[in-house]
């Protein structure tokens, strides 16, 4: 039990630092994934067919391929892609993509593929009559988007996005295999060093459970906020 403490001999502080990195990974990936997901959703709603096909192909691919494989591809692949892009722009070598960024790239690519479906669904769920009403009172397209569509989109998409957040929070554990010192990797190393793998892995499991429980609570309060003023 002392091994879980916070002193020089204990691994408690390391575990907590790992958990903090896990949360960081997930939050940064959420922000990027959400943005990218929005773009994908717009592409899918576009009147320009090739754009729709491109977005469709992308989601089909990501949804059919293991997250683990996508992370490995992101890990070994992004640098090659970045280097190739840099070469096109005439920049020479030395552009570094750290492990963390590669993992964020992979996780947000996955989040976007699932998130765009949720966003697209929510977009279509806003009644057309409201949009027409907006036009008829003379609102600009941007105003219609910002004042009418977005607030409702947010409300409708929240439960789905909340689920995806939970999925991604758990997927961050895959970064352990890429030697990123997030929660699971710290637990594995601690278990190997102290020869107590069961205790440390269980501790990691408990922390993940705590993180998902907190997320669930936060989601509920977000939903309540987004739904305020709505009739039940």
């Amino acid at each position: 039990m002392e091994l879980l403490g916070f002193g020089a001999e204990g691994w408690g502080d390391d575990l907590l630092r790992g958990a903090a990195l896990t949360v960081q990974l997930a939050v940064v990936s959420l922000a990027i994934g959400l943005t990218f997901g929005m773009v994908l959703a717009l592409a899918k709603l576009s009147r320009f067919a090739p754009l729709r096909w491109l977005a469709q192909g992308y989601t089909l691919f990501i949804r059919g391929v293991p997250e683990f494989l996508i992370l490995l591809l992101a890990f070994f692949g992004t640098e090659k892609a970045v280097a190739a892009g840099a070469a096109l722009l005439g920049l020479e070598g030395g552009i570094e993509v750290p492990k963390f960024a590669a993992a964020v790239g992979g996780l947000s690519a996955i989040f976007a593929a699932y998130g765009c479906e949720v966003i697209r669904g929510a977009w279509l769920a806003v009644p057309n009559g409201q949009i027409e009403a907006g036009h008829s009172v003379g609102l600009s397209r941007w105003q219609i988007f910002y004042r009418i569509r977005l607030p409702q989109l947010w409300r409708i998409a929240l439960p789905g996005l909340g689920n995806l957040w939970l999925v991604m929070l758990k997927d961050t554990s895959l970064a352990a295999v890429l030697a990123i010192d997030e929660l699971l990797r710290v637990a594995k190393v601690a278990g190997e060093v102290t020869r107590q793998p069961l205790m440390f892995l269980l501790a990691a499991g408990a922390i993940y459970l705590l993180l998902t429980a907190i997320s669930d609570k936060m989601r509920a309060s977000f939903e309540a906020r987004a739904n305020r003023g709505m009739a039940r």
Partner: peptide, 23 residues
């Protein structure tokens, strides 16, 4: 449902294989 949905699959695999297996 709560425990197995609330923790990552990879953690579950390692708890059983490396954790319990180490007994």
């Amino acid at each position: 449902s709560y425990v197995f949905r609330g923790t990552p699959l990879l953690v579950q695999l390692w708890i059983v294989y490396y954790g319990l297996g180490s007994l």
